[in-house]
Amino acid sequence: MEKISVFAPATVANVACGFDIFGFAVDSPGDVVELTRRDTPGVRITDIIGDGGRLPREAARNTAGISIQRFLQHIDRTDIGVDVLLTKQMPLGSGLGSSAASAVAGVFAINELLGRPLQTIELLPFAMEGERIACGSAHADNVGPSLLGGFVVVRSYSPLDVIKLDTPAGMFATLVHPDIEVNTKDARFILKNEVSLKNAITQMGNVAGLVAGLLKPDYDLISRSMVDVIIEPVRSILIPQFGEVKQAALDSGALGCSISGSGPSMFALCRDLATAERVGQAMQQAFLAVGITSEAYVSEINRQGPRVIG
């Protein structure tokens, strides 16, 4: 194989109560990486479409590029040469796992191009290196679901232990990205280093409840458990109109609504497509009430992860 194109999906991390341990993938949006074999060894970024010139073209500083480099080093194939064309199909700094999608698409594509020397789950550490480049932390709550599909739990980082959970059939996600930007590093900086015992107990109960609700499945339990008493109260101040947008989603039938990743995007989980579309419209209207335009995406939970598209 001399050329391959791979799509990797956007993701929602944290999922309200699960800071740095929960994430799920959606069908759209996502990023596309096209790899082409070349005779000269090394990884070269030939172009990036859709980033407005903001992302680094140097492979070692690019999320897709560094993930491919680390993969080739691991399998001892640094003699391989590839050109990388990256197409960004979601906003940068959106809280939708943009850097994760690029990293996952890149490492999944090179593994396919070389005949799958590694299992899909074994690609996770290389994609995490892309996250380290992007935000300084090699977290897995975006790359995990983007790579594996579905709803993912990061039980441990040392050793790395990632579990994919079943999700109820027919459950939809609504993502709304307001036209503002929140820097991931800033969103982490404002978090407190310590939490009260009361809040820790409440949060643990909601984490357990959300997992149980997904597995049973029990929509009412999912709804009751999508409550974040630790992270959301702090980060929500970075998103204008947050409270009103969340209430609009709940009033329109959402099971729950919170910040997607570090924001500014917000997400809602819904029982069906009609509800998800209605929720998206209500959330957009709430943002528009204070003059903030937004993009909305509605899709089922993506259970496949990345896919070869060419």
Rank of each mutant, 00 (worst) to 15 (best):
R155G: 01
Y157N: 14
S158F: 11
L160C: 01
L160D: 01
L160R: 00
L160M: 05
V162N: 01
V162I: 01
I163G: 00
I163C: 00
K164N: 01
L165V: 00
L165E: 02
D166E: 15
D166C: 13
T167V: 12
T167R: 11
P168H: 00
P168Y: 03
P168C: 01
A169C: 10
G170K: 05
G170H: 07
G170E: 00
M171S: 07
M171K: 07
A173D: 09
T174H: 05
T174W: 13
L175P: 06
L175E: 01
V176R: 11
H177E: 06
H177N: 15
P178N: 02
P178F: 11
E181M: 14
E181C: 13
E181I: 14
E181V: 15
E181S: 15
V182G: 04
V182F: 02
T184E: 01
T184C: 04
K185N: 05
D186W: 04
D186T: 11
A187H: 09
F189W: 11
I190C: 06
L191T: 08
K192R: 15
N193I: 04
E194S: 09
E194G: 05
E194L: 08
S196K: 07
L197K: 11
L197G: 06
L197E: 13
K198G: 03
N199E: 14
I201Y: 06
I201W: 04
Q203V: 05
M204P: 10
M204K: 14
M204S: 14
N206K: 08
V207M: 11
A208N: 05
L210F: 12
V211P: 07
A212L: 13
A212W: 03
G213E: 04
L214Q: 09
L215C: 12
L215G: 07
P217H: 10
P217R: 10
P217V: 02
Y219T: 08
Y219G: 10
Y219R: 13
L221Y: 07
I222S: 07
I222Q: 02
S223M: 00
S223K: 11
S223V: 06
S223F: 13
S223P: 09
R224W: 09
S225H: 06
M226R: 05
M226H: 03
V229G: 04
V229N: 10
I230M: 14
I230G: 07
I231F: 02
I231S: 06
E232D: 12
P233Q: 13
P233G: 12
P233T: 08
S236K: 15
S236P: 06
S236M: 04
S236W: 03
L238V: 13
L238M: 13
I239W: 00
P240W: 08
Q241V: 14
F242P: 05
F242L: 02
G243A: 13
E244V: 11
K246I: 12
K246R: 14
Q247T: 11
Q247H: 07
Q247W: 11
A248E: 11
A248H: 04
A249D: 07
A249S: 01
L250I: 14
L250H: 01
D251V: 04
S252I: 05
A254K: 06
L255R: 08
L255H: 08
G256M: 03
C257W: 00
C257A: 11
I259V: 13
S260N: 02
S260E: 02
G263F: 04
S265Q: 02
M266W: 01
F267H: 03
C270G: 00
R271T: 08
D272S: 00
